[in-house]
């Protein structure tokens, strides 16, 4: 499929920076200098642009992304919740504060196949730990929003099929 040719970044040099770094930073003592040389920019400009993209939220963070399984989290569960629409945001805010939860989103239901509207990722060193984390979330929702909770499930991942992250076309 032909990638859609839309301006991605705010300007061409930002876009070039995304392309040059989306696969990772060079493992050389001066990685920003290496990128600058590749793009024909001054190293100071590359660093300024990256700082600016961080400040504007275009870059969430710069760092390592571990494979969850490799670092011991073999039970990665997507907990999904059917919560009354009126209370969904309040419940989402509450779940999002729990240390066990790494992501929390509201998403549309797909009835009749899919009744859940809140998604919260949990990570355990074994299934029991993840199940306990989800049970604690359920107990919290039921105590704080007793009339709004209807059902939940945990979908454990059993295989990583792909984990490359964002790749825009050059």
């Amino acid at each position: 499929m032909k990638p859609v040719a839309m301006p991605l970044a705010s300007d061409a040099d930002d876009r070039a920076l995304v392309l040059a770094t989306q696969g990772g930073l060079p493992l050389t003592p001066q990685p920003y200098h290496a990128i600058a040389a590749e793009l024909g920019l001054a190293p100071v400009e590359v660093m300024q642009r990256l700082r600016s993209m961080l400040a504007r939220g275009m870059i969430r963070r710069i760092g390592v992304v571990p494979n969850h399984y490799s670092i011991g989290y073999t039970a990665n569960g997507m907990s999904v919740w059917d919560i009354d629409d009126d209370a969904a945001d309040a419940v989402g805010e509450l779940i999002g504060t729990l240390p066990a939860v790494t992501h929390c989103y509201r998403r549309p239901r797909q009835l009749p196949l899919w009744r859940y509207n809140l998604f919260a990722m949990v990570h355990g060193r074994c299934r029991e730990e993840a199940v306990d984390q989800v049970a604690a979330i359920a107990a919290l929702i039921e105590s704080e929003f007793p009339a709004s909770y209807r059902a939940h499930e945990i979908l454990f991942s059993t295989r990583i099929l792909k984990k490359t992250g964002l790749r825009i076309a050059g």
């Binding site: 930002d14 770094t21 990772g24 939220g57 275009m58 390592v64 992304v65 571990p66 984990k163 964002l166």
Partner: peptide, 18 residues
């Protein structure tokens, strides 16, 4: 070894029109 799947900037594509 695949312990790290990536090392670098994590882009928030939604802040860039994506």
């Amino acid at each position: 070894r695949g312990v790290l799947t990536r090392f670098g900037p994590m882009f928030q594509i939604e802040r860039m029109g994506g």
